[in-house]
Amino acid sequence: MAHDDAAQFRLTVVDQALRLFAERGYEATTVDEIAVAAGISRRTFFRQFRSKEDVIFADHEFQLVSAQEFLEQVTGDPWDAVCEAVLGVFERFTQWRDIAARRYQVVRRVPALREREIVTVFRYERLFTEFLRERLPDTPDLARVQFTAAVTATHNYLLRRMVRGESGAAVGDLRAELALIPRGRRERSATDDMVVAVFPRDMPPRRVADLLATRLDSL
């Protein structure tokens, strides 16, 4: 089964599972009922998913794989690449808006699923941070972590507003917000603390000192 076909198949199962969870409750719905609703056998279900919980987050698994594949091929600015990967995730969620909205309703009612969602969010952050560590080895690690945390939090905030029906946020809105997040800084070197000044040869030393003091105070 091709990658896109496999993803569409899994989304079909997810769609049916979420419908049943909404109608009957997560705990009351069985794997057999999901399989029947999706028109597949129990064996086929377990070839694609390990459990009911996996069904809930199947689209996230696809998103993580897609983001990783994108980052492996990108050649541009690493900070921009992370933003583009996040934009791709958001765009696909806008296409699956109904599924994302129904999952939100199910997850918020089940504590175990809320915990799994937190872990899933961390997996996005870890993917983006590891990418920046590989592409920007001289950047302070805290700067990389701060950036990926801010990017992920911005994505999740707009996505939650969308699935709750509070906003019609689009990809362009997320792009504008991501552009405001500061990029990391490189490691400081010895030359970062050096100041080079040029003065006329005949300028009095006292005047040179005064000008340097004034300019350094303004840096």
Rank of each mutant, 00 (worst) to 15 (best):
A170P: 03
V145C: 11
T139H: 11
T139V: 12
E130A: 09
M162T: 07
R133P: 08
H155Q: 04
A169H: 09
D141F: 15
R103V: 02
R144S: 15
R164Q: 12
A170T: 13
R175I: 01
Y104P: 01
Q105N: 09
G165V: 11
V163D: 03
A150R: 15
H155V: 02
R164S: 08
R133K: 15
V163E: 03
R144I: 14
L142R: 15
D98C: 03
A101S: 14
Y124K: 08
Y104V: 01
D141A: 14
A176W: 00
R133V: 06
N156Q: 04
V121P: 00
E130D: 15
Y157R: 11
G165W: 11
P111K: 05
R164P: 05
L178D: 02
R126C: 10
R164W: 09
I99L: 15
L158Q: 09
A112S: 09
E177C: 01
V151Q: 10
S167C: 11
R160M: 11
A101N: 04
R164Y: 06
E115A: 08
R123D: 12
G168I: 06
D138C: 00
R116K: 14
L174K: 04
R123C: 06
V171H: 03
R108D: 01
A170E: 14
R133L: 11
L113N: 02
T129V: 15
M162H: 13
L136N: 10
V163A: 02
E115G: 00
A179K: 03
A176M: 02
T139I: 08
R175A: 13
F122L: 11
G168W: 05
A176H: 05
E177I: 00
E117V: 00
A101G: 12
T148A: 08
R160F: 10
T154E: 03
E166N: 09
Y157F: 12
E125T: 03
A143V: 10
R103Q: 08
E177S: 03
E166R: 10
L113I: 05
I118K: 04
G172N: 07
R114A: 02
L159N: 06
R164N: 09
R144Y: 12
V163F: 08
P111A: 05
P111W: 09
P137M: 07
F131V: 13
T148Y: 15
R103E: 13
A179Q: 02
T139G: 03
N156M: 05
E130I: 07
L159E: 06
R144G: 14
V119F: 10
R133F: 09
G168T: 11
R135L: 12
R144F: 12
T154S: 06
R135W: 05
Q105H: 11
T148F: 14
E125S: 05
A112K: 03
T148P: 15
L113F: 06
R161Q: 09
E134I: 10
L158F: 06
E125R: 14
V151H: 13
D138L: 04
E115F: 01
G172Y: 02
T154Y: 00
L127I: 12
L127P: 12
L132T: 11
P111C: 06
P137T: 12
E166V: 09
